[in-house]
Simulated assay, not measured.
Amino acid sequence: MIISTPATSANLGPGFDTLGLALNLRNEVEIEFSNVEKIEIYGENAEYLKKLPNNMFVNIFSEVYEKLTGHKPICSYKFNNKIPISRGLGSSSALISAAITAAYEMGEIPYKKDKILNYALTYEHHPDNITPAILGGFCVAKVKKNRVYFLKKFIPNSIKAVVVIPNKTISTNYSRGTLKEFYALNDVVTNISSSSMITAAFFSEKFELLRNVVEDKIHQESRMKAVPELFKVREIALREGALMSTLSGSGSTYFNLVYKDDAYNVFSALKSYFPEFNVKILNFDNLGVKVYK
């Protein structure tokens, strides 16, 4: 059995801990029952992950499987990772979503994706990454009383993502530590109105609106100081025609939404200025976590 889960870009600027979308950059894990546990890791950050004393996927999968079935699983695992870690592309949410889905599948227990989503709150308390990781598309989500309330919108193929992945990491915990405890009312209103307009633009597919409404006063500027080159990334992307340009999650990746016909121009300009960074043109993912048997 293979579990495939997409990368995600969360916050989308002003939609802090609320907005997110899925990108067609996937991690896969092949899992089957075995007499002896075996773990193979390939792809992004493989050498680093091999050295860790514990495998987060195996731990979560085993814990959930045992709770569901009453038995401890012994399996072989083969990971093929394309999502870089600590880059703001939802690698942890992809792992959590895949592990819980695998537990239900291997335990042959019927489920719907909203059950996986709510279970994932046990391990990831913010819904902006886990919701699109599981459901795909553009998602707006809110947690209330340990339940995720969400709406999903299919993303058309008329738009693409151009992501800039720096050769530097930003720790999510460190990044949250740079945020203020209190914010001015005007700044809060700016974020509420901007995130509302982003949601409206996606659901109505009036993406041209995004050029004028994406503004964040809560987190981006302080987080971007950890990788100052990101300010130039945003400047170039918007100059070359990006509809919006925002920090992906807590960074360090920068997300740029573009019309399909503008994708190569934005990509070329960014790659030319930042040859040391990994710049990719990505399609959006509308399926979320997938299972192949």
Score class of each variant (00 low, 15 high):
220 Q>S: 06
268 S>D: 02
286 N>G: 05
152 K>H: 07
177 G>T: 05
197 M>D: 03
68 L>G: 01
199 T>M: 13
4 S>A: 04
54 N>I: 15
13 G>P: 10
143 V>N: 01
215 E>R: 15
182 F>C: 11
20 G>N: 02
133 A>G: 11
116 I>S: 05
70 G>S: 04
151 L>V: 06
103 A>H: 09
29 V>A: 00
256 N>E: 09
50 K>I: 02
188 V>P: 08
234 R>I: 10
108 E>K: 15
241 G>N: 07
208 E>A: 14
269 A>Y: 07
180 K>H: 10
61 F>G: 01
270 L>P: 07
55 N>A: 08
34 S>W: 03
157 N>D: 15
218 I>K: 00
192 I>Y: 01
197 M>Q: 11
66 E>Y: 08
91 S>L: 12
105 E>Y: 15
238 L>W: 06
175 S>Q: 00
174 Y>T: 00
108 E>S: 12
219 H>A: 03
254 Y>M: 06
37 E>M: 12
273 Y>K: 04
92 S>M: 08
132 P>F: 11
222 S>R: 15
46 A>S: 13
61 F>Q: 09
12 L>R: 14
212 N>V: 04
278 N>Y: 02
120 A>F: 06
154 F>W: 12
115 K>I: 05
190 T>D: 06
140 V>R: 09
110 P>C: 06
273 Y>W: 00
33 F>E: 10
194 S>Y: 11
183 Y>V: 14
139 C>F: 09
290 K>E: 13
203 F>V: 14
266 V>A: 11
39 I>E: 01
5 T>H: 05
181 E>H: 04
124 E>Q: 06
245 S>F: 04
4 S>W: 07
8 T>Y: 08
261 D>Y: 07
80 N>K: 07
89 L>F: 04
199 T>E: 00
221 E>C: 04
217 K>V: 14
143 V>R: 13
251 G>C: 07
18 T>E: 05
14 P>R: 00
169 T>G: 04
191 N>A: 09
96 I>D: 00
205 E>P: 04
269 A>E: 05
239 R>P: 13
71 H>G: 04
110 P>S: 11
167 N>G: 11
